[in-house]
Amino acid sequence: MSAAGHAFRDNLTMVRRSLLHARRYPSLTLNVLLTPVMLLLLFVYVFGNAMSAGITGGHADRAEYVAYLVPGVLLMTVGMISLGTAVSVATDMTEGIMARFRTMAISRPSVLVGHVIGSVIQTLLALVLILGIALAIGFRPHATPLDWLAAAGLMALVSLSLTWIAVGIGLVSPNAEGASNLGMPLTLLPLLSSAFVPVGTMPDGFRWFAEYQPFSPAIEALRGLLLGTHVGTRNAVLAVAWSLGLSLLGYLWSKARFNREPRR
């Protein structure tokens, strides 16, 4: 078998390991999903009328706010699951599993690729679950089949970028708790975006930050795709640029850190 064939086989093995780990410990995934599900239900059934009145200029329409809210919650879910990946990688580091992989005759990148691809697959499955809950509480998308395909591609791309960053966080963290703390921006940034309210309603400083941070363009692009409204070239370009840039940064960071001799 060629070197490329061996590397491909090693990648598949590591992806399988990641998925088996998720299947054996489903409580980890369920705990990660609990926050976006609770936020979705909280903002729809407790704050829905008030929030929709603020967005529509005084007319309370919970269904309209559900349509506005769901794309943001979907991408918040992506951030939550990537945080779980950081914790998983840190656990592998502290338990010595990564050190063992370094000594084995396997493709070194496959160790990281397995975590990343496994996490992206778990993320897409979790998004189907969140979307099912959203449909049950009144979310009514107006996307064409092509829009759905583009939306799935966008969510996968965002997941890929955040997961590579999460892998780097896990590799530099001293333990699982440290990875959870260092990865908090992955879960907090959606709260400072257009996920829950339009950025135009925010004070100037927050508005500028919310408008240009990675989540807002992706949320606006996803919102346009799912609701059948105008996506906007600016949102699409920024979302793809942020995702590709973070993917490259996370990959280079993770690779450099993994190839470094362990200090513990």
Results as ranks from 00 to 15, higher is better:
Gln213Phe: 13
Gly79Pro: 08
Asp147Val: 06
Arg16His: 13
Ile117Tyr: 02
Leu19Gly: 11
Ala4Arg: 08
Ala60Leu: 07
Leu41Gln: 06
Gly114Ser: 11
Ala210Lys: 02
Ala179Leu: 06
Ala156Pro: 04
Tyr45Gln: 12
Tyr251Ala: 12
Glu211Ile: 03
Asp204Pro: 03
Gly84Thr: 03
Ala256Gly: 06
Val70Cys: 07
Ile137Ala: 10
Leu225Ala: 13
Ala99Ile: 05
Ala241Arg: 11
Ala256Ser: 14
Arg264Leu: 14
Ser18Tyr: 04
Gly183Asp: 06
Ala7Val: 02
Ala4Ser: 10
Leu33Thr: 05
Thr229Gly: 15
Leu135Trp: 07
Arg9Trp: 02
Val116Phe: 02
Ala7Thr: 07
Thr187Ile: 15
Ser110Ile: 12
Ile81Leu: 15
Ser110Met: 11
Leu238Arg: 01
Leu226Ile: 14
Leu83Gln: 09
Ile169Val: 01
Arg17Asp: 01
Val199Pro: 10
Leu186Glu: 00
Ala90Gln: 03
Arg100Glu: 10
Pro26Gly: 08
Leu28Val: 15
Phe209Pro: 11
Gly138Ile: 00
Gly168Ser: 01
Arg24Ser: 14
Ala221Pro: 07
Glu211Trp: 10
Leu146Ile: 13
Val46His: 01
Ala134Asp: 08
Ile130Met: 07
Asn49Met: 05
Met104Tyr: 08
Ala152Leu: 14
Ala236His: 05
Asn235Met: 02
Asp204Thr: 06
Thr229Ser: 15
Ala210Met: 04
Leu33Arg: 05
Arg207Val: 03
Met51Lys: 07
Ala179Met: 08
Ala218Gln: 10
Arg100Ala: 04
Pro71Gln: 11
Ser107Arg: 03
Tyr45Met: 11
Gly170Tyr: 01
Met155His: 00
Thr103Leu: 14
Phe47Asn: 03
Met98Ile: 14
Val231Thr: 15
Phe47Tyr: 14
Ser180Gly: 15
Asn31Gly: 15
Thr103Ala: 14
Leu83Ser: 03
Met93Arg: 15
Gly48Asn: 07
Leu20Val: 14
Ile130Arg: 02
Val199Gln: 10
Arg62Leu: 07
Arg207Lys: 11
Ala3Ser: 02
Leu69Thr: 08
Gly250Tyr: 13
Val78Asp: 05
Leu154Met: 10
Val111Phe: 03
Pro185Ile: 00
Asp204Gln: 12
Pro214Ile: 09
Leu248Gln: 03
Leu244His: 00
Pro185Asn: 02
Leu131Glu: 06
Gly153Pro: 07
Arg263Asp: 12
Trp208Leu: 14
Ala239Tyr: 03
Ala63Met: 13
Asp92Ser: 04
Leu244Ile: 15
Arg140His: 13
Asp92Leu: 04
Leu186Gln: 04
Ser180Arg: 13
Val158Phe: 09
Arg24Cys: 09
Gly228Pro: 07
Leu42Cys: 06
Leu40His: 05
Tyr65Leu: 01
Met76Thr: 08
Arg264Ile: 12
Ile169Pro: 01
Val37Tyr: 06
Arg257Val: 11
Gly57Met: 11
Thr35Trp: 11
Phe215Asn: 12
Arg263Phe: 08
Met14Ala: 12
Arg108Cys: 03
Gly79His: 08
Trp242Gln: 07
Val78Asn: 07
Arg16Glu: 11
Gly170Val: 02
Leu127His: 02
Glu95Val: 12
Ala50Asn: 06
